[in-house]
Every structure is written in C-alpha cells, then in structure tokens.
C-alpha cells in the first residue's frame, strides 16, 4: 500500500509569523508544465498594511544593529539555504521548469549572492561615506543610512535568484521590507520565508506576501509609511509601472524604476541595488578648545 503524502500549506510571512491571508483567499499555483502544484495565500490590501506595520516596528532594531551583526545574520541565511539546497532545487525545478542541474546552479548563485551582499554590510559606509574638508573649523562627516521601510515587487520570472537579488541589498544596509513575490511562481519565496524564520533575521525585517503585484502594488506605492519602492516585479509593464511611480510621489518615495525586461540575474550586481535605498546624512560639529 502506498503512503499518502502530506502536502504543505503555503502561507504569508508577516512579522515573523505565517498567517493565511486575512481575506481568506488563496489561488492555484501551477508548475511550469501547467499542472496543479499548490494553493498559495492571495495577499490582500489588509495583509500589505499589516506587513508595513511589522516592517516599521522592526526598523529601529534592525537598523540599530551593528553592521558586523547584520553581515553575520545574512551569512547565516546563506548557510541555512546551503543546508536546504535540495529543497530549494526542487522548488526551482517546480516553479521555473528548469532541469535539476540548471536549478542547482540557480540555487548556488542565489546562495553566493547572499554571501556577497552579507560582506557589504560593514564596508559600504567606508565606500560611500566621506570626511568633507569644509573651509572652516568644523568636523564634517557624511555617512549612508537606510531609507526605512522598502516595498519590493520581486521579479516574476526568476523566483529564487531574482528574489534574493532584490531582497538582500535592501536589508543588508538596515532597511526593513515588504516583498510581493512572483505571482505565478511564489513557492520558492515561501520556502525562503521559512528559512528566514528559522535563521537570525528578526521578525518583521522581511515580510513576504504571495499574490499579484498589480493588485497589492498600488496599496504599497501609495502607503504613507513606506519610504521606497522597487518596481522590478512589474518589468515590461510600463503602464502599471508609471501608475505605481505616480502613486509613490504622494510621499516622495524613493523609486527604483522597473526595467523594460527582467535583467540577467546571474551577472554581478552593481552598488545601486543598495544605494537606491540609502540616504546620506551629514553631521557638522565645530572644532575648538
């Protein structure tokens, strides 16, 4: 007699917990071949707002940690992903229809990307900051600081590597985030959330919503307690991207514009993935006896 397998319920990840959507809605997720794979929670406006509250609450603590500590926390995420490499590989095979070999390379790159970003945590201030030689007796120092709560519309195609490539640069500098996963390929995102929950990333730093960027995006773009938004997830949809950018102007969010098509996620990232979500603070103090 064959054993009946136990299926997994894919839920949202908000404030360190795994709730269903408050709306009670879910949607069917298919594998790359079009076969039913699972039901995923369909995040609602209320879920998005709850996630923003959690991200705001987590911001002070996360941004206040030492850069060294944030580096360690991100590196720890990479360690746990490596530990669960077969699980992630299966998830990418299912979501993207990649061969096991291709999926394995995607997972490896995603893990390496996390390690790369983890290392930036305590170097970015030195690369971006300046002591400024003002013409007077003043100490004057400019340093980067996180922008705050960043909404991220994750890429639609690259369900794991793309996701890691947009989330890691946001949080490594001390921001907290509300992420909307790929709509059609959300399952690797939920698996990543399970890794985050069992690593040292504090609850609320990353909040992960499965659902449609076109329906949740406008709420996040217009939310007055969100400081910035990454529109990568609406790449190739210029009308929607423009609509979101207009909404983001209500409180002058920093906007990372949507590219015309998804970028090559295998390429080494540039610094603007991090600097787009940083502020520069300049402090003056007189010099004297």
């Amino acid at each position: 007699m064959t054993r009946l397998d136990v299926r997994k319920t894919y839920k949202l990840y908000i404030d360190g917990a795994f709730p269903r959507s408050e709306s009670g809605h879910s949607y069917q997720v298919s594998d790359a071949a079009g076969r039913f794979a699972a039901n995923a929670a369909l995040a609602s406006r209320k879920d998005a707002r709850d996630a923003v509250v959690a991200a705001r609450k987590a911001f002070g603590g996360w941004s206040g940690r030492t850069a060294y500590n944030r580096a360690q926390v991100l590196y720890r995420v990479a360690e746990i992903m490596e530990d669960r490499r077969p699980q992630f590989t299966d998830a990418v095979v299912l979501a993207e229809g990649a061969s096991a070999g291709q999926a394995g390379r995607i997972v490896d790159t995603a893990i390496d990307r996390l390690v790369w970003y983890a290392g930036w945590a305590d170097k970015l201030t030195q690369v971006l900051g300046n002591a400024n030689p003002v013409a007077g007796p003043y100490f004057n120092l400019s340093t980067p600081e996180p922008t705050g709560v960043v909404a991220v519309l994750a890429p639609q195609e690259s369900s794991l590597l793309g996701l890691v490539s947009v989330v890691a640069p946001v949080i490594v500098t001390g921001n907290t985030t509300v992420v909307v996963s790929s709509f059609a390929r959300p399952l690797p995102a939920v698996t990543l959330a399970e890794v985050l929950a069992t690593s040292d990333v504090p609850g609320g730093v990353v909040n992960l919503l499965t659902g449609d960027a076109a329906s949740i995006g406008p709420w996040l773009a217009a939310h007055m307690d969100v400081n910035a938004i990454d529109l990568t997830g609406v790449a190739g949809r210029p009308d929607l991207a423009t609509q979101l950018e207009v909404a983001a102007a209500d409180n002058l969010k920093r906007v990372r514009r949507a590219p015309s098509a998804e970028p090559d996620w295998a390429a080494e990232p540039e610094l603007d993935t991090m600097t787009d979500f940083l502020e520069t603070k300049t402090v003056w103090h007189p010099i004297g006896l």
Partner: peptide, 28 residues
C-alpha cells in the same frame, strides 16, 4: 535624527564640499 544634515553645536553652515539634501518628504 532622520534628517540629511545635522548641525551639532552650530547651525546653518554650508560648504561646497559638504553634501546637502533631505530624507522623507524633503526630497531626494
């Protein structure tokens, strides 16, 4: 302080070498 320029024991000092600009709705 969530502000782009902080003057400590001084105020309204400006210099071409010193970056100036805001957080939040003070611009980017």
């Amino acid at each position: 302080l969530r502000a782009g320029v902080v003057w400590a024991n001084t105020f309204n000092k400006f210099d071409p070498t010193s970056p100036f600009g805001g957080y939040k709705e003070s611009g980017y």
